[in-house]
């Protein structure tokens, strides 16, 4: 006859086997993560390696298409000796400043306009036609107008960045306000909220995910606005750096500036994502991220 093990033993055995299974699952996740990172690096190395080899053996003409080592050297020169227009940091700073100013003004304006028109049907009906017209103008063309009107300084770049950002944010904020749940608004009304309180505590939070989604893209647009503005005429900035490099047929310079811009955009994107996670922490995590 075998002894019947006590429930306490059972529980201990069960806990142990759960711990083992958990450990295995964690190890599997870690391995997968390492694999993904490794594959990403491998692709980058292969890509750059092929490009470099192609340039070395003149399959890809480095005069037109640059080469990784050339780009690296160019960035090193810019960092150590500065660019033809002054130190690299100054160029980055100028472009970032224009971008930020344009982004903030455009976003604030777009959010405000979106909320006002979203809350007021008459205004929305009246202005919708003008917004459609303004939105259909290719905005980059406005850059020339701004440079004529505002000169070669910072104002014209900021203005171009503002119009690039404004319409995207406006459209999203407007939509977000319109999609706000009617039951929720009615609930707030009956609980005693004034129209202003409803806007502040119901409309804006519920439009927030729409607005944040637009901020992601529109920072990129602000950067495009600033760079294109500098391209069209400026005394400082990354756009000018690109246009100078272009004028000198310096492909390495164009690519180097492009990479610097990409890094800038990625860093800001990261910051915006952080901000978004902070603002909408009430949102349920997607199912595949839960429990980790």
């Amino acid at each position: 006859m075998t002894a019947i093990s006590s429930t306490a033993d059972h529980a201990a055995v069960r806990d142990a086997s759960i711990a083992v299974a958990e450990g295995r699952a964690r190890a599997r996740l870690r391995r997968r993560h390492a694999l993904v990172i490794g594959l990403r690096l491998a692709i980058l190395v292969v890509f750059l390696g092929l490009w470099e080899l192609g340039a070395d053996y003149n399959i890809i003409d480095p005069f037109f298409f640059a080469s990784p080592s050339g780009i690296r050297d160019q960035i090193r020169v810019w960092v150590t000796e500065g660019t033809s227009q002054g130190p690299l940091w100054l160029q980055i700073y100028v472009t970032l400043e224009e971008t930020f100013l344009g982004f903030v003004i455009g976003a604030v304006g777009g959010i405000a306009a979106g909320i006002i028109l979203g809350r007021n049907r008459l205004l929305a009906d009246v202005f919708s036609i003008y917004i459609k017209i303004a939105n259909s103008v290719p905005r980059v063309v406005l850059g020339s107008v701004f440079i004529i009107a505002l000169g070669l300084g910072m104002a014209s770049k900021v203005a171009l960045a503002v119009v690039m950002v404004f319409f995207v944010v406006f459209a999203n904020a407007f939509q977000g306000v319109r999609e706000a749940d009617r039951a929720m608004i009615a609930n707030a009304q009956i609980l005693g909220a004034s129209p202003f309180q409803i806007t502040r505590t119901v409309i804006i939070p519920s439009a927030m995910s729409w607005i944040l989604a637009s901020l992601h893209v529109s920072f990129g647009f602000a950067l495009v606005g600033a760079v294109v503005g500098e391209f069209l005429g400026a005394k400082q900035g990354m756009g000018l750096l690109i246009s100078t490099a272009q004028g000198a047929f310096n492909a390495n310079g164009v690519f180097a500036a492009m990479i610097i811009l990409a890094v800038m955009a990625l860093v800001v994107e990261f910051i915006i994502t952080r901000f978004e996670n902070y603002v909408v922490k009430w949102r349920p995590a997607p199912f595949n991220e839960q429990g980790t």
Partner: peptide, 13 residues
């Protein structure tokens, strides 16, 4: 007046 709604009307944020 107090109103308990048919649909979920809590503020999710």
């Amino acid at each position: 007046i107090g109103f308990v709604f048919q649909a979920d009307a809590l503020f999710p944020w």
